[in-house]
Design a protein around this nucleic acid. Structure first.
Length: 508
RNA sequence: GCCAGAGUAGCUCAGUGGUAGAGCAGAGGACUCAUAAGCCUUUGGUCGGCGGUUCAAAUCCGCCCUCUGGCACCA
């Protein structure tokens, strides 16, 4: 059995509506997933939501609902986000499902049996208003910040997971392995581990927090939400059953930089180590979108809401922008001005318009479908040479998560097709009766068509919806993999293309 | 404070030793199949600052400045 390429997003915390950050992580992961499918991997793509914990409880309470009612409302929003953005996830897990809670409980029991979980007294300062412990270091001039309200010193018993026991192991693991991409993020982890890590408090007394998974060995406590949430990565793929080995170890956990340390780079590897499960192969850590405040969205009339943008410009346009503009791992700005600039320049004017030109010209001048390319002059040669270079580049760039550069190269190629069209100017040749001119006209349309096909196929991971539409107009099936797809050829010969179409209408 | 990332044309960025680049925006032009799109030409930068190494530095070294993020639980 061939092991699947297993990739996950972080599961989103179910106490609010999906926003751009959620959308980005899904899109990024989806681009990787679709890319791997195109290279022939069998992919398993997992996403979901994290439902337990205090903040969900608080949010629910504030809305006069039970936690279950809240998460049952929120879950469909995230499922809908995936649908809206053409996310190709194979599974969507909710941490309230029994397939998850059962595994969490069995792991807790396992760790308890092994002696890696122990009970101890915890003494600390507790904010009644915020319903959380606050740290001594948060004190400003000996006073607690206003937002905490009354802070009282309390003592309670809790269960702890022996993180510290595994610190040395983790440090040496990170010294010997490239675990985090981009690599500079791994240094942040190493930095964090220079200080001794405390054992992790993994329980909350039921009287203080009831919305969670009960500890199997002490029903008076629920499981701390991070400990619960991380386990989704294995509970969703049958941890403890036969099929687990088809998925695990995970190839990439795609996460935001904010949850790298300590959750994914410290808690999670140690949890896995403690229960004897191999670590995931890599963490793919992305940056954040800065959205520049509300005034930008107000002035343009479209707010930076993934659903609204998707509705106004199409999911592919949003996916394109998020992938084109973000250097994976860095932060980036999202403004409507930048978005519109990309949309107009790259999608509407460059790509969309080229497709429209091709469809119009071939509909008008090719009564028997696309003719053969019989002329082989310098312009044809240059286009093909550029394609050969482009295909090499983009495969390498996709592989290295350099999606923004890959798209840049693809669009440079599209620009070259527009230039080629000007050089051959088939609309001028159409006015001639000379058979030589006719041959050049037919050739030029064959070259543009093949170029459009190649560029479109290359962009499938990023814009699957548009790719399907364009290939459909070229009377071409969407290929399941890239096998043989990047070879310049004449497969479109004889086809009668669809009616001219505006792929990316220019806004208002 | 510590760690990291970033400081290059109006904007977004590429460029790790050899005469400053791209895209977008701006300006001009020829064309017209096309979403007034495309194509050609073009304005524009003392490469954050100071010093050093070198025949030669945006690129290496040192010091400094600014912005952003992380430093125990918010994509």
């Amino acid at each position: 059995m061939k092991k699947k390429f297993f990739i996950t997003t972080a599961i989103d915390y179910a106490n609010g509506r999906p926003h751009l950050g959620h959308a980005y992580e899904k899109v990024l992961t989806d681009v990787v997933a679709r890319y791997r499918r195109m290279t022939g991997d069998e992919v398993h793509f997992l996403t979901g939501i994290d439902e337990h914990g205090q903040k969900v409880t608080q949010t629910a309470k504030a809305q006069g609902k039970s936690p279950e009612e809240l998460t049952n409302e929120v879950a469909p929003l995230f499922v809908d986000l995936c649908k809206t953005l053409l996310i190709s996830n194979d599974d969507f897990i909710r941490t309230s499902e029994t397939r998850h809670t059962d595994v969490v409980r069995s792991i807790l029991q396992d760790l308890h049996d092994r002696g890696d979980i122990y009970k101890a007294r915890y003494n600390g300062y507790y904010s009644v208003r915020q319903e959380q412990f606050v740290l001594e270091k948060e004190r400003v001039n000996g006073e607690w910040p206003e937002i905490y309200g009354e802070v009282v010193e309390i003592e309670e018993e809790n269960y702890f997971f022996r993180l510290g026991k595994y610190q040395d192991w983790l440090v040496s693991f990170l010294r010997e392995n490239e675990f985090v991409f981009p690599l500079f993020r791994q240094k942040q982890v190493t930095e964090f581990l220079k200080e001794p890590v405390n054992d992790l408090c993994i329980s909350r007394p039921v009287e203080r927090l009831s919305w969670g998974i009960r500890l199997p060995f002490d029903e008076d406590f629920v499981t701390y939400v991070w400990f619960d949430a991380l386990i989704n990565y294995i509970s969703a793929v049958g941890y403890g059953t036969e099929r687990f080995g088809e998925y695990w170890p995970c190839d990439y956990h795609v996460i935001g930089k904010d949850i790298l340390v300590p959750a994914h780079a410290v808690y999670w590897p140690i949890m896995l180590k403690a229960i004897g499960v191999p670590l995931p192969k890599s963490l793919l850590v992305h940056g954040w979108w800065h959205t520049g405040g509300a005034k930008l969205s107000k002035s343009s009339g479209v707010s930076i809401d993934p659903f609204e943008i998707s509705k106004a410009f199409g999911p592919d346009a949003l996916r394109f922008f998020l992938t084109r503009e973000m250097n994976v791992g860095q932060d980036s700005d999202f403004t409507m001005e930048l978005f519109l600039s990309r949309y107009n320049a790259d999608l509407a004017n460059n790509y969309g318009n080229l497709v429209n030109r091709l469809l119009n010209l071939s509909g008008r001048h090719l009564k028997d479908g696309l003719a053969a390319a019989t002329v082989d002059g310098d312009p044809e040669h240059e286009v093909r040479a550029l394609w050969e270079k482009t295909r090499e580049d983009i495969l390498r760039l996709y592989e290295g998560f350099q999606f923004h550069t890959a798209l840049e190269r693809i669009f440079q190629f599209i620009t070259a097709l527009n230039r080629y069209a000007e050089i051959r100017a088939p609309w001028k040749l159409a006015k001639s009766d000379n058979p030589d001119d006719r041959a050049v006209l037919e050739t030029s349309l064959a070259v543009i068509a093949e170029g459009v096909r190649l560029a479109t196929v290359a962009v499938i991971p990023v814009m699957p919806g548009v790719a399907e539409r364009v290939l459909g107009l070229l009377r071409e099936e969407v290929p399941p993999t890239w096998e043989g797809q990047f070879d310049w050829g004449n497969r479109l010969e004889g086809r009668t293309f669809g009616e001219r179409a505006i792929l990316f209408p220019r806004p208002g």
